[in-house]
Design a protein around this nucleic acid. Structure first.
Ligand SMILES: O=c1ccn([C@H]2C[C@H](O)[C@@H](COP(=O)(O)OP(=O)(O)OP(=O)(O)O)O2)c(=O)[nH]1
Ligand SMILES: [Mg+2]
Length: 459
DNA sequence: ATCCAGACGGG
DNA sequence: CCCGTC
DNA sequence: GGAT
């Protein structure tokens, strides 16, 4: 008998199917007396909840009550394995107080005053897993498919959950082999554990397979891979009956960005080698140096995190004297365009605003060079550290760190770290005051985190 | 029930 | 303002 | 979807 309380609907039916498949017999009511051999319950089911379900304890007298983990393992090994530690409660006994908990040793160095925030739930508090040893690649790939599908259809919170779960799984040193192992992880609930379980058992996700075949999903995927087209526009176009790039070119109203996106469509789908990213950054550095000696440039993004391929090149420009960065942008862009290096603009700073950002497309002067995305930001020297933090990422690392800052009554952006921020819900009521952040390390310090080099911020 | 990062440019 | 992007 |  499987007690359904706390076991997801889907997981329950999967377990039931499996039991039958393996020659087991499901008992669904207490009427079939004397034929009950094992009772399966969710790990978190309390003794009271259990008693309530069976109504009369005598009905299950002497029958072992086991965690779902026991059933999972029996099914995996195709044998009745020893009950041992899988026993939930031998019927006349009492319920163990806590079965799973976050009782791992907390090497906590919290400030003794104020409410301490447990940073274990924040990705920015942990090194990202090694790029080489993702032992759960199958799981992360399958979940990634669904994450992308949800993102493309504007269900971005669901997509966020999937991405967080994937990052969590990537850090694991050992393969996940059961529902229970997955469910314990922060950010993985019944639904995701369910899916992970299916991947482990079946080697794939039927839901992802089914959805990926659909015309809508495939079309949204195509449209959103155009630079400047997001889920909303893709859905709009799909609703208008557009189905391929030719439809889009001839029937849709295209922004300037989307026109460039289409022009460079194939090239921009690719990532470039780390070496090429270095060459592109060097072109900017040389031009900047010629225009204004002493100006500093940093290649950030995935390049600074040490990745072997880069989706684009992210260059941060600043000047140690604190003022020479002003007015540098226009001449720089002019120079790079004149040389034929910059081929198209995607976004240019409306001058006289704080942020100085350029997004565009460039091409090296080589045979068979491809169009590459290029991002340049010019920042005042006083904002160098927070700007480096921001532009180095990863995006998930930034979001995690900013969330932590938020929870601590602070606010982190590329411009600085502020304390004493007061919020009403999401709305800021008081901006608080700027903290001194001379280095990246100082930002970690303010947030009570151990410093992490760029390579370990790859979440 | 509410939050999930915070900022910028294009249109 | 909404959308898309970093 | 998940955590609080
Ligand atoms: O939503 C985002 C996207 C980016 N960034 C920051 C972190 C990121 O590292 C940097 C550069 O963005 P990019 O999109 O280039 O990411 P990347 O980390 O460089 O990866 P890729 O190799 O795909 O370019 O800007 C954010 O803070 N939030
Ligand atoms: Mg990048």
């Amino acid at each position: 008998m499987i007690v359904p309380s706390g076991i997801g609907k889907k997981r329950l039916s999967l377990l039931q199917d499996k039991v039958v498949l393996h020659g087991g017999r499901l008992v669904s009511s207490f009427e079939e007396e004397g034929r009950l051999t094992h009772v399966i319950v969710d790990d978190m089911l309390s003794i009271d909840g259990f008693k309530k379900y069976v109504e009369d304890e005598a009905r299950v007298a002497g029958v072992p009550v086991l965690k779902t983990q026991w059933l999972s393992r029996c099914l995996a090994e195709n044998a009745i394995i020893p009950l041992g530690e899988h026993q939930m409660f031998a019927m006349p006994k009492i319920c163990p107080t806590v079965l799973v908990g976050t009782s791992l040793g907390h090497p906590h160095e919290e400030q003794t005053k104020e409410i301490s925030i447990n940073k274990d739930g924040f990705a920015c508090a942990h090194a990202s897993g090694m790029k080489t040893d993702n032992v759960n690649q199958l799981i992360t790939e399958e979940l990634g498919k669904l994450a992308k599908i949800y993102k493309n259809s504007n269900d971005h919170w669901r997509a966020l959950t999937y991405e967080r779960a994937i990052n969590q799984i990537k850090k694991l040193p050992k393969p996940i082999s059961s529902y229970e192992e997955a469910k314990v992880l922060h950010g993985i609930g019944p639904s995701l554990a369910d899916k992970i379980w299916e991947i482990v058992e079946q080697g794939k996700l039927r839901k992802a397979e089914k959805l990926s075949e659909g015309e809508k999903v495939r079309t949204l995927e195509l449209f959103t891979s155009i630079w400047g087209v997001g889920a909303t526009t893709a859905e709009l176009w799909y609703g208008m009956g557009l189905r391929n790039l030719n439809d889009v070119k001839t029937k849709a109203h295209l922004t300037h960005q989307q026109q460039i996106g289409l022009k460079c469509f194939d090239d921009l789908l690719e990532r470039m080698s780390r070496a090429e990213a270095g060459e592109i950054a060097a072109v900017i550095r040389k031009a900047v140096e010629e225009l204004c000696p002493g100006t500093q440039t940093f290649a950030c993004g995935s390049y600074r995190r040490g990745k072997s391929t880069c989706g684009d090149v992210d260059v941060l420009v600043t000047h140690p004297d604190g003022v020479s960065h002003e007015g540098l942008f226009q001449p720089l862009l002019k120079k790079l365009k004149l040389s034929g290096f910059l081929t198209d603009d995607l976004m240019i700073q409306e001058q006289s605003t704080a942020q100085q950002k350029y997004l565009g497309v460039c091409k090296l002067h080589k045979e068979n060079a491809k169009y590459r995305r290029l991002d340049i930001i010019v920042m005042p020297y006083g904002e160098l550290a927070p700007a480096l933090m921001y532009f180095t990422g990863s995006a998930h690392f930034n979001r995690s760190m900013r969330l932590l800052a938020n929870k601590m009554g602070m606010s982190l952006s590329e411009h600085g770290l502020r304390a004493g921020v007061v919020r009403q819900g999401r709305e800021k009521v008081n901006d608080g005051h700027l903290l001194e952040t001379p280095t990246e390390a100082s930002i970690f310090q303010h947030l009570g985190l151990e410093y992490r080099p760029p390579e370990d911020r790859d979440h």
